[in-house]
Simulated scan of single mutants.
Amino acid sequence: MTKQDVINQVSEKTGVDPLLTRSVIESFFTVVKESLVEGEPIYIRTFGSFILKQRAQKTARNISQNTAVTIPTQIIPSFKPGSEFTNQVRAQPMPAKIKK
């Protein structure tokens, strides 16, 4: 499902103009990005949380030169689904083919 598909479905379900729906969804994405950049997590009850996670420093190997490479600590955005959302997904049977 693409962003346009989401916009179309939300517009149909709410009866709101697709242009206004696009603006609202884009604004939501902007708020999420700005909040995470500032280090502020977002908690949406029954849906999930947009949080920051820290990946530890690790050592990798450059196999073409056979040398060790240190990958520094990184902070990445992450989504953690809420328990109600997770249980709702788990209750559904696995589709025969998962779309990618």
Rank of each mutant, 00 (worst) to 15 (best):
Q57E: 15
V10T: 02
S35M: 11
I75W: 07
I42W: 03
P77G: 02
L52T: 09
T86G: 07
P81T: 03
A68N: 13
S49Y: 02
K99Q: 08
P18R: 15
V24C: 03
S83V: 10
T59W: 02
Q92Y: 00
V16C: 05
D17P: 03
R55P: 01
E84Q: 14
S83M: 08
I75A: 03
G48S: 09
T59F: 01
I42K: 08
T67D: 05
V89W: 08
I75V: 14
N8L: 08
E26R: 10
V24Y: 13
I75F: 06
K58F: 09
T73L: 02
P93N: 08
T21N: 02
S35Q: 14
T14D: 03
T2H: 07
S64V: 12
E26G: 04
K100H: 05
V32R: 12
V69D: 05
K58W: 06
V16S: 06
K53W: 04
I63G: 00
Q92V: 04
S27V: 05
S11W: 01
P18C: 02
L19K: 15
M1W: 06
K3M: 07
A56I: 08
Q9V: 06
P18F: 01
D17E: 07
K3G: 05
K53Q: 11
Y43W: 04
N62Q: 09
E40K: 15
A96L: 11
R22M: 04
R61N: 04
I7S: 02
G15W: 09
R61A: 03
N8V: 01
T67A: 09
S27D: 12
K80W: 00
P93A: 07
L19A: 14
K53Y: 05
K13W: 04
R61W: 06
V69R: 02
P72S: 08
A68M: 11
T14L: 11
E38P: 05
N62M: 09
E38H: 14
N87A: 13
I42P: 01
N66G: 04
T46S: 13
D5V: 07
G15D: 07
Q4F: 06
P41H: 11
V31G: 01
E12H: 12
K13A: 10
L52I: 06
L20V: 09
F29Y: 14
L19Y: 11
E26Q: 15
N66Q: 15
V89G: 07
N62D: 14
V6G: 04
S23G: 07
L20T: 10
P93S: 08
T67M: 14
K99A: 08
I7H: 04
D17R: 14
K80F: 00
E40C: 10
G15M: 10
F28V: 15
K33G: 07
S35F: 03
I44R: 06
V69S: 05
K33V: 09
Q9K: 13
S11V: 02
V89N: 08
K100I: 07
I63D: 06
S27P: 03
F47E: 05
Q54N: 13
N87F: 00
